[in-house]
Simulated scan of single mutants.
Amino acid sequence: MPKINGNEIRPGYVLEHDGGLWAAVKVNHVKPGKGGAFAQVELKNLRDGRKLNERFRSEDKVERVSLENKDQQFLYETDGKLVFMDSETFEQTELDADLLGERRPFLQDGMTAKIEYYGDEPLSVALPQKVICKVVETEPVVKGQTAANSFKPAILDNGLRLMIPPFVGEGEDIVVHTETMEYSERA
């Protein structure tokens, strides 16, 4: 694993620090009038989600870790565990359902997700940026209501509540952003 200087840390880098794996969330380079320059870095622990603010001087050496991304297919959920299968080797991996958090309803059977590995340890799951969902329940379409930029509540087939434009009716397929959890367009 390569060692980098403290002033080379960028957001998104994964570092080995204090015996754990940390992702750099925010990096602020500070050059005070007196003393040496340093990087004020907000770190997030990839294993337990703790946050930490750390100061790295330019001469500090930090271990940068590269994670391996693998596309894996979601099979099923059992006892709070999500089971994924590698489409090349057909090996199955079990992950905690908590890794997805509030984005869990977007995970559909057969969906391909990116899983980041550190060695053999799976650390995170990234869903596709957009998924297609069906509107199960919403208010009826009212003529002439499309002129104003307004939204109405809807319930999707995965149980999620979402605000959608007034022209979308029940039974229609829509595209939803998985990161922002917002309506994107009709499918």
Rank of each mutant, 00 (worst) to 15 (best):
V14L: 02
Q72L: 11
D96G: 12
V175I: 07
R55K: 15
E116P: 14
P165K: 00
K34T: 15
T178L: 06
R64W: 12
Y76G: 10
L52T: 04
S66K: 13
T180V: 04
V131Q: 01
V30P: 08
K34I: 14
T178W: 07
P11Y: 04
Y117I: 05
K26L: 13
L15F: 00
H177G: 10
T138F: 03
I132L: 07
K34W: 09
T93Q: 07
I155R: 13
E170W: 08
E8N: 08
I174P: 01
A37S: 10
G169P: 00
G159Y: 00
W22P: 05
P32M: 01
D109T: 15
E59Y: 14
S150Q: 09
N149H: 07
L75G: 02
L127T: 02
G36F: 03
T89E: 07
R57A: 15
K34G: 04
P165I: 00
E91W: 07
L123F: 04
D18F: 11
R10F: 05
F167K: 12
F38E: 03
V65G: 05
E77M: 10
D120F: 14
E185C: 06
I4K: 00
H29V: 13
P122Q: 11
H17F: 12
T138H: 01
G19L: 02
V176Q: 00
L160P: 09
L107P: 07
V25I: 03
G20S: 04
H17S: 03
V25S: 09
Q108R: 09
P32I: 01
L100K: 02
L162K: 02
F74G: 03
F90M: 11
P32S: 01
K130D: 13
G19W: 02
K143V: 11
T93Y: 12
A126D: 12
A97F: 04
M1A: 13
Q92H: 12
A154Q: 00
E172G: 06
K61W: 05
E172M: 11
D157R: 00
S150E: 14
K61G: 10
E179D: 13
T93H: 09
T93V: 14
A37H: 09
